[in-house]
Amino acid sequence: MAKFLFTATYTVEGINGLMKDGGTRRAEVIQALIENTGGRMESLHFALGTHDAYVICDLSDQQTAVALAATIRAAGGLDTRVNPLLTPQDMDEALRMRMAYRPPGA
């Protein structure tokens, strides 16, 4: 399983739906959607600022993450983005990889 961060910003239609359904009900809907893919929702938080909601979840692969994000965006209530999250061990492994690179003008 891989960990992903979904960020969401409500559209006018979406915020009206949230006001009608409430935050708890929307969290239940998102959790069920994730679980139906075989994933697990770690947390969902509503926020003030750049994004209206943040979801951290475990999913089987990137294709599942893209399918979820596309399905949610296509419904029209949210502008949703997905970001893969790395563990400290993932970061260590990536940083041990050595690559040859010449910066522009060097």
Score class of each variant (00 low, 15 high):
5 L>T: 11
103 P>R: 01
46 F>C: 01
62 Q>C: 11
86 L>K: 12
5 L>C: 12
50 T>P: 00
43 S>A: 15
43 S>M: 07
23 G>N: 10
40 R>Q: 15
38 G>F: 06
20 K>C: 02
37 T>F: 05
49 G>V: 11
86 L>Y: 14
77 G>Q: 00
20 K>W: 03
89 Q>M: 14
48 L>D: 12
9 T>S: 15
97 M>C: 15
60 S>K: 13
57 C>H: 07
98 R>I: 14
11 T>E: 06
33 L>Q: 02
22 G>W: 05
90 D>R: 07
1 M>F: 13
21 D>Y: 03
34 I>C: 04
10 Y>R: 02
58 D>C: 02
59 L>C: 01
90 D>K: 05
77 G>I: 03
30 I>V: 14
52 D>L: 04
51 H>P: 01
89 Q>Y: 02
48 L>I: 13
71 T>G: 14
67 A>K: 04
25 R>H: 12
54 Y>C: 01
60 S>C: 03
65 A>V: 05
99 M>V: 12
51 H>F: 15
100 A>H: 10
45 H>M: 09
6 F>Q: 00
78 L>F: 10
101 Y>V: 13
59 L>Q: 01
51 H>D: 11
42 E>R: 07
85 L>C: 15
76 G>L: 11
74 A>T: 13
16 N>A: 15
32 A>S: 06
96 R>G: 07
87 T>R: 06
72 I>M: 11
16 N>G: 08
50 T>F: 11
98 R>V: 07
22 G>N: 05
73 R>W: 05
75 A>L: 10
